[in-house]
Amino acid sequence: MTYRFRDLLALEPLNADELTFLLDQSKPFQEIQRHPLKKLATLRGKTIALAFFENSTRTRISFGTAASRLGADTMNLQAESSSLKKGESLLDTVHTLNAMKPDCLVMRHASSGAADFVARHLDIPVINAGDGTHEHPSQGLLDALTIRDRKGSLENLHITILGDISHSRVARSNIHLLAKFGCRFTLCGPAMWVPRELESIGPPGASIRRVFRIEEALEDADVILLLRVQTERLHEPALSAGDYILLYQLNAERLRLAKADAIVLHPGPMNRGIEITPEVADGAQSCVLEQVTNGIAVRMALLFLLTSGAVEEGNVAVAENQPKESTHASH
């Protein structure tokens, strides 16, 4: 088993074996997070370009830390300093970055499909660190790793996703990944945040239903995935925080409607008191901090797989060197 793509643009085109492979490759890197000395020399001499055209703190730090723990150097481009502000096109910006000869480009962008667009024009691996409201594949993988660790398996779980699913790239990546393992989904939120088309975005035969009452959504849930209510982003239409809390906030009482061993995930940053109460966020069922730690392991595995190419330096994981195709070629 190996990873057959040059890039990681989305989880949608990956099958269950490939996803399992990526999760398995993350295992040894999870181990490293527990070591007192966390730095490897695996990617020494490699350079990772981190291009965050949209503001990000945790994902940027997570990829940066992953690169540094592999011994790679990073070059950083951030939205505030971006030449896009000076009118340069995205294509010119990434061609300029590419001319500095990085071995991999990790990019976040506010436009859905931006990573796909850039990958078509570059000859180095591109990792999508979130594109608009499309996908956030490394988040989907770290969520799955967290779920698999807690539940023992990803097979046939009941996943409940709460909130603004329509605008969530995290929700899409989670659906595309977990549906491949037979998970069924209940999507819950106000109708404008949960359009009925979401029921059809999964692979053929996927079980995805939407409900509008949180009590119904939580019933029998194995995993509850919360999404941040993006108070800084204007929604069409805006929903008042008070109404959201009334209808959809996950509190301890509502959490009891789920299975006793249900777990709660949140991609962060959390709005305590809005989509989640502090006691749920800090409770035993919450996995939010494990998600953060697993994020580094997953991103180390991805950077390793996509940039190492040859096996000889790899002492933790194995990747075969063979011609890679790009993910966008297959969907």
Binding site: G113, G132, S166, R172, E197, I201
Partner: peptide, 16 residues
């Protein structure tokens, strides 16, 4: 307003 394609399963899947 703000739309870049027809609304449907594809736009929902692509996040457009």
């Amino acid at each position: 307003a703000g739309a870049v394609m027809r609304e449907g399963v594809t736009s929902t899947r692509l996040g457009l």
